[in-house]
Design a protein around this nucleic acid. Structure first.
Ligand SMILES: [Mn+2]
Ligand SMILES: [Mn+2]
Ligand SMILES: [Zn+2]
Ligand SMILES: [Zn+2]
Lengths: 142, 142
DNA sequence: TTAGATATTGAAACTGGTTTTCAATATCTT
DNA sequence: AAGATATTGAAAACCAGTTTCAATATCTAA
């Protein structure tokens, strides 16, 4: 289903209202490069919509995360980043600690193993974070 | 080698000084329950050493992390937690999002797979985080 | 041992991303 | 169209963490 629809359904279910700002922010978010911070998106929006406030951008990103359209990431630099959830499912990240490059990866065997480990401890996983920090191909050989 | 010695060697190597506060904080940290925040350790210390300041506790925990004696963790509640590094090596965590219980796990196969994934992308891992969030055995069945 | 150089300390101020407040405005329901 | 309710943007508050600074402690070299 269309993500615009998913969002308006979510809003209705929660007794919230559809507004112009929310629509504009949703569209800009979906077209944005991945892993953008509130600040990133706010600055990008400001060009065409100078009256939208930072607080509204951040509130809307939180709503998008709650509705499942956005995934909130924390890569250790102290600011939240958001990326559109993918239809093709979950992925994890490698983060270059020199240049900031983010590489995405999927490894079904790891997912399976972590599921097994959780079962051993009678732990019910609701989500997880798996991040590799280090040097990308470009930064590795200095 | 004794961790007290490791720390004083580290301080000397960096041109820093051995002080009473640093010794007291190191000992309290090593005896503390794992995964304690600066606040946790500060409050614990205050009973016997009411003149030690919060800033000194936090500065010392950072030094302990730099020297390899402590590992700094972030479990998504916005505050850093520290645990003594183990002689028996690395481990990862499951965090109960209801009661806060932290379960530690080691899974060499996952470590090996993540190493392989990194190699495919010519990425040189310097450290990683792998955390499972969900419900512990006690909280799972409500 | 002592004097000078240097680092540390604790309290308080500051930082920066995030969250909340609040009065004005927009949306929704009848 | 009017009343009820939610949203908005600017500014203030929040809060873990970090920095500042004058007083104090540690270290080094006579
Ligand atoms: Mn991603
Ligand atoms: Mn641990
Ligand atoms: Zn890089
Ligand atoms: Zn629990």
């Amino acid at each position: 289903m269309d993500r615009v629809r998913i969002f308006s359904d979510y809003l209705e279910r929660k007794g919230l209202k559809t507004t112009n700002q929310r629509n504009v922010i949703l569209k800009a978010f979906l077209n944005s490069r991945s892993h953008c911070s509130t600040e990133d998106l706010y600055l990008k929006l400001r060009k065409k919509h100078p009256r939208i406030g930072y607080a509204t951008v951040h509130r809307t990103l939180k709503l998008l995360a709650e509705s499942g359209i956005a995934i909130e990431q924390h890569f250790g630099d102290g600011q939240a980043r958001f990326e559109p959830a993918r239809a093709d499912g979950h992925h994890d990240h490698m983060v270059c600690i020199k240049c900031g490059l983010i590489i995405e990866f999927e490894e079904p065997q790891i997912e399976e193993l972590q599921k097994q480990v959780a079962e051993v401890h009678h732990f019910k996983i609701s989500n997880h974070r798996h991040e590799l920090y280090g040097f990308c191909f470009r930064c590795a050989d200095k």
